[in-house]
């Protein structure tokens, strides 16, 4: 139990020090699960950098870290952070749903609501509205 928490002590301490809310650190079958809500995207980045320092390239597989960003609230501005392509906006939350619009790489859109951790309802400046993958959306701070 303590061995994993010792290995990732710097990460857990940093999460606490940075004011991560609802921080939950638990273990399941040799995997440390770290969940919480970081106050900013910068804190989330910082935590991922510390994780990558302790476990280079995240290859050990002994951590699952699910950190959300508290600033991603309804009405927030989000930047499309796809690699280079457009982000599909879909009618419903799921890749099987029809595409109703696209948001360009680096475009700024608005968050309407979060259907789940993965699917967020967004609106583009052109008024296109639908669900997009949260992993490609980053709150603008």
């Amino acid at each position: 139990m303590a061995a994993l928490q010792d290995k990732y002590k710097e990460l857990i301490d940093a999460a606490q020090a940075a004011g991560t809310s609802n921080l939950k650190v638990s273990e399941l079958d040799g995997v440390l699960h770290i969940e919480g809500e970081a106050p900013t995207g910068a804190v989330k980045d910082q935590l991922w950098n510390i994780y990558g320092k302790i476990d280079p390239n995240f290859l050990t597989g002994d951590v699952v870290m699910n950190i959300n960003v508290a600033t991603a609230v309804a009405g927030a501005k989000l930047k499309v952070i796809t690699e280079s392509s457009n982000l599909n906006i879909r009618k419903g939350p799921g890749t099987d749903q029809p595409i109703v619009g696209k948001a360009a790489h680096n475009e700024i859109v608005s968050l309407i609501s979060k259907q789940s951790d993965q699917w967020w309802l967004i609106r583009t400046d052109n008024g296109e509205e639908g669900y997009a993958y949260a992993q490609y959306l980053q709150p603008v701070e």
């Binding site: 995240f58 290859l59 951790d117």
Partner: peptide, 27 residues
């Protein structure tokens, strides 16, 4: 590539899996 894998790992961890086993991945 390392930076793309990091993005993928972040996305996979957010799905609440039990574990992400990448021992067979070449970075």
């Amino acid at each position: 590539k390392a930076d793309r894998w990091k993005k993928l790992k972040m996305a996979l961890d957010a799905l609440k899996p039990k574990k992400v086993d990448a021992s067979g991945l070449k970075v």
